[in-house]
Write a protein that binds this DNA or RNA. Structure first.
Length: 668
DNA sequence: ACTAGGACTTGTCCCTAGCCGG
DNA sequence: CCGGCTAGGGACAAGTCCTAGT
């Protein structure tokens, strides 16, 4: 019905444009019409049939070039049904007595999956965008050494600017940072500079620092037009370099810009902080694309390191970074088929774990009694991974990164055992730095067997010895692989996160709640998961202030409310006195006003609670990486909550497959 | 069995576009 | 229309897990 209404409107527009004599305008309208028709087409179909009948008037199709139709159709179809792919090369379209027959092939993701391990058949892109070249400082901005101004060579100056931009950060005062920086900086100096500049403490970067501050201030002060221009330029760059063609579809690239040079910071107590991250040139880049595609061109006068055609991998370009010597990649955006499909598979693996988790739990409990030490250790570690959602904990090379651990790499110093604590027995206290040097602190009571085993593991060990000395991640994962196909340590995190969300949602959602209250429940369920996974954040710098603002708003609303209530009272007594229509209306109006303000107040209060509870907890990570989006989609459908209340635009794009697939009765 | 390298996922921080109330 | 604030996106670091070579 809706579509036919739209069609009528379109037809009216069509007549209109025919009578218009302005050629240009007509052309424009033509284009819009095409777009409109194509978007209508995309929305017109449900997704399961191989062949669709669609009733309409042929006039639309005659006027559209078949090629355009095909392309628009492919795009629209994909946007609306990301879980499917349409093969439009075989698109077949003709009219029959006012009906239009459209026939094309629809393929589901899993049907399209290649069996030989290849990830794509065709890949074409324009290559990465490089960091802008270094612009030397104007002469008036000077660097001082030992109190005297000194002109630096361009390479040395560039590195100096990196440091000068960071002057406000605490880490420029750290010894390691300064030492690493100075060492790398000296490598960029001319021999003359090298002999002169021997002590970082005698370097004065303040003038440079002020210059950059002024620059950023000036950028803020730019006129609207200038800002608009920059925005447009950026947009153009995205249009040109931000997309690629992979197997008949135009897909967004995740990070098409190469990381600019700068000083490496690292997280936590990183031994390499302050080192120079060098500039990446075309000669460092390996391009990956299909042989029969138009290969990306390197910037004039340069060459790529290599152009290869490896369809067993998903990346478009790669280079080796100089701090850790690891490889960096350019890959597709999460909304792309290749990422979405993988994401979906991940949750399917977690759902398979759900089916056999009881068996696995029984087994590891059995293994706590094993005669073999390695099996006991494996079983206790697995218990922690399952119960506490710890990460696997690969070994790391000492001195290369910050000292952090996961389950398998836990050391004796990270756990403390308390046979009795308060009113609980067999309490284990964990205190260690995990990924990104985020502290994990937790005290939990465990079963007696686990406790006894831990005591055994700790015997005759130094604090810096491994807790699980007979275990590492590859042993653990090999074991898990035997328990279930595709099972690894991280699947437990996904599984426990998703199952917790589903169960919390069931528990917390009250059918009679208002929409904001329901959303609060959702956020609380999300929060439970974030706490489980230890997703913390530094309380935002503006937290206190924004909390206060909210509080004042609430007070204001409360005042408004009491005022409105008073007015309602007055109106009521007026009505009692006069009993006329006018006063009756007035009462209604006032009643509505009170109601509205009550609602607003409630919304604010809910918001305040939500924010307070969220002070140190980051919801984003679990939402993006651990929670099966179909649970959320189903919840939204079940309770009539708009999906946009839960997922913002990017998240909706990433989870398009789930929004498409999940019905309100979906069970993880 | 062990290691290094490679590919891909997960994680936090920081900046800024754009929203909203005054 | 302006300025303050904040959500969201980008940047990029740091994990996991797998494979191939020794």
């Amino acid at each position: 019905k809706e579509h036919s209404e739209k069609k009528h409107k379109d037809r009216d527009k069509l007549k209109h444009s025919n009578s218009s004599s302005d050629k240009h305008r007509e052309k424009h309208k033509e284009k819009r019409k095409e777009e409109k028709v194509c978007s209508l087409l995309g929305k017109a179909f449900s997704v399961v049939d191989i062949t669709f009948w669609y009733r309409g008037k042929i006039i639309f199709f005659m006027e559209i070039n078949m090629k355009v139709l095909k392309f628009c159709f492919a795009q629209d179809f994909k946007e609306n049904n990301p879980y499917f792919t349409a093969v439009v090369d075989n698109l077949f379209c003709f009219s029959l007595m006012g009906w239009i027959l459209l026939s094309f092939v629809v393929i589901r993701w899993e049907e399209e999956r290649y069996t030989d391990g290849s990830k794509w058949r065709f890949l074409e892109h324009k290559g990465p965008v490089f960091a802008p070249p270094y612009e030397p400082l104007p002469d008036k901005v000077r660097f001082y050494y030992d109190g005297k101004p000194m002109k630096l060579s361009a390479p040395a100056e560039e590195v100096a600017t990196f440091f000068s931009k960071m002057l406000d950060h605490e880490y420029t005062t750290k010894d390691i940072f300064r030492k690493n920086f100075f060492k790398d900086w000296r490598k960029e100096m001319t021999s003359e500079e090298k002999s002169k500049i021997t002590d970082l403490n005698k370097c004065d970067f303040t003038e440079m620092n002020e210059y950059f501050k002024a620059q950023s201030e000036a950028r803020k002060q730019m006129s609207k037009e200038e800002k608009q221009k920059i925005k447009e330029e950026n947009e153009r760059l995205v249009q040109e370099y931000g997309f690629c063609i992979m197997d008949n579809h135009k897909e967004r690239i995740g990070n098409f810009r190469i990381e600019p040079p700068g000083l490496f910071r690292g997280r936590g107590d990183h031994p390499k902080m302050g080192m120079l991250k060098r500039r990446i040139r075309p000669e460092d880049i390996i391009i990956n694309c299909s042989k029969d595609s138009k290969h990306p061109k390197p910037p004039p006068g340069t060459k790529w390191k290599e152009v290869r055609h490896d369809n067993k991998v998903t990346w478009l370009a790669s280079w080796t970074e100089n701090i850790q010597g690891s490889i960096k990649y350019i890959m597709l955006n999460p909304s792309s088929r290749i990422k979405g499909e993988k994401d979906w598979q991940k949750y399917e693996t977690a759902r398979r774990l759900k089916k056999c988790v009881d068996r696995i739990r029984t087994q590891y409990r059995d293994d706590w009694k094993s005669k073999e030490m390695r099996i006991r250790q494996r079983a206790v570690a697995l218990y922690f991974i399952d119960k506490l959602a710890l990460r696997a904990g690969n070994e790391k090379e000492e001195g290369e990164t910050a000292d952090t651990v996961g389950c398998c790499s836990l050391r004796v110093e990270h756990v403390k055992l308390y046979p009795k604590m308060d009113d609980q027995e067999y309490v284990v206290e964990f205190d260690f730095l995990g990924k990104d040097s985020i502290r994990y602190y937790n005290k939990i009571p465990v079963e007696k067997r686990v406790f006894k085993n831990l005591q055994l593991f700790l015997e005759n060990k130094q604090p810096e010895d491994d807790l699980f000395d007979r275990l590492n991640t590859s042993i653990l994962n090999k074991h898990l692989q035997e328990l279930m196909d595709g099972l690894t340590a991280k699947v437990f995190r996904t599984y426990n996160a998703s199952i917790t969300l589903q169960q919390q949602l069931k528990e917390l959602t009250c059918p009679d709640d208002s929409i904001p209250a329901k959303i609060l429940s959702y956020n609380r369920a999300n929060r439970a998961v974030a706490i489980l996974c230890n997703h913390q954040r530094a309380p935002p710098k503006t937290f206190e202030k924004s909390m206060q603002n909210l509080q004042t708003k609430i007070e204001e609303k409360q005042n408004q409310l009491s005022a409105a209530r008073k007015q309602l009272k007055v109106a009521k007594s007026d009505h009692k006195a006069s009993h006329d229509d006018k006063s009756k209306k007035a009462v209604e109006v006032k009643r509505k006003a009170v109601q509205r303000i009550e609602e607003q107040l409630m919304k604010l209060q809910v918001q305040a609670t939500d924010r307070e509870e969220n002070k140190q907890i980051a919801l984003g990570t679990s939402k993006l990486n651990y929670l099966d989006p179909r649970i959320s989609v189903a919840w939204c459908k079940k309770w009539g909550v708009g999906i946009e209340k839960i997922y913002n635009k990017t998240q909706r794009e990433k989870f398009a497959w789930a929004i498409d697939m999940a019905e309100k009765d979906y069970e993880f």
